[in-house]
Design a protein around this nucleic acid. Sequence first.
DNA 1: TAGATTGTTAATCGATTAACAATC
DNA 2: TAGATTGTTAATCGATTAACAATC
Lengths: 213, 213
Amino acid sequence: MKNRDLMLRLLKYKRILIQFRDLGLEKVFSNNLGDALGISAALVRKDFSRMGFEGNRRGGYRIEDLNREFERILGLSEMKDVIVAGCGNLGKALINHESFSKEGIRIIAGFDIKPPSAEINGIPVYPMEILSDFVREHAVQVGIISVPAGGASQVRDMMAEAGIRGILNFAPVELKSSQNCQIQNVNIGLELESLFIHLLFPSDTGGIINDRS
Amino acid sequence: MKNRDLMLRLLKYKRILIQFRDLGLEKVFSNNLGDALGISAALVRKDFSRMGFEGNRRGGYRIEDLNREFERILGLSEMKDVIVAGCGNLGKALINHESFSKEGIRIIAGFDIKPPSAEINGIPVYPMEILSDFVREHAVQVGIISVPAGGASQVRDMMAEAGIRGILNFAPVELKSSQNCQIQNVNIGLELESLFIHLLFPSDTGGIINDRS
DNA sequence: TAGATTGTTAATCGATTAACAATC
DNA sequence: TAGATTGTTAATCGATTAACAATC
């Protein structure tokens, strides 16, 4: 879990810097990026230093240079193809999600035990039995699970066996990563509940625990 | 961010323990819970000790006791009412999401600049202008943002001003928490991209960084 | 030059783990 | 009793921050 935060920060830097560039800016200071991401300037400098990105002791960092570096390190030139297992409401929403394409993500197929239609928004929907073959044939690397809780772990196994290496899981079951298959769980119910819990403990000191240390 | 991990663990303990109980079990060991959550037994004991939950040096923890304690501390007896701003595909999917009710979460209204219909799945959908009044009238505490990126921060302000204290944000914009309003961002595109990045760096040592320390 | 910002080191902080005495 | 598990302390680990010398 260690590198996960760093990774997400890097992706956020990358996106913000593109916005900065599009705004016509040429330079940024660690300061600016810290503000934009809600972190300290020191951490920005530390991150960049770790990545080997160099700035100028007076003029900050050249946005163009940073963009090039991020593209070199985190750039995924080809389209990132993804499949969706489970074409209920959430699955449909993901398939229809228009902002993925802007980020180079393309959903190339949906799967469902009982396909609600042959295609959604122009994306073909196949019966679940075909998933393995499709994944192998198209060398799909990443999949989304949006089936009900009961079917999730079975779909995980199916995906992993077929060669999928990364899974974003929306089913309310905690799936565990394995050596070959990285799983990211998004438990919407849990997130909502945690927001409610926060309300119970007003102070920002996080009063849940009665810690005596 | 400190307490967030602990909080999520507590909610997971709570859910797992209910499953254990429903399976007819009476006792658990720190060991079992650690396995179930993918964490160490030591951390389970530490968490419980911090919360003041006591076990038995030989017989582990009584599930019934733990359930009672969790209910006391994290129990939200009343229904947890939530509103959804943005009734596009994702918003619809959330409104239709059936597993929320099982978790005591109830979506009581949707809002949209241009409501696609008067109601979705029996839940009323109102024009966005009404949001503030509705929130005040019903004392809504938690909201979900599922509008496009462009409108997200405006909706955030609207919600926060009307008195909403917790927001789950699905728009691909990083919204920042304020004193009165806790925001949890779920950036699906970012999560997917990070899965792809993982594929670039095969080793589990997390080879992105070239750290010399 | 004077001023500002980076790059880096050492300090801090907190979370997790290892280990073991207490004890059922 | 012997064995197993908790509860807790001290050690570890890693991430973040503070601070400041280097330098543009």
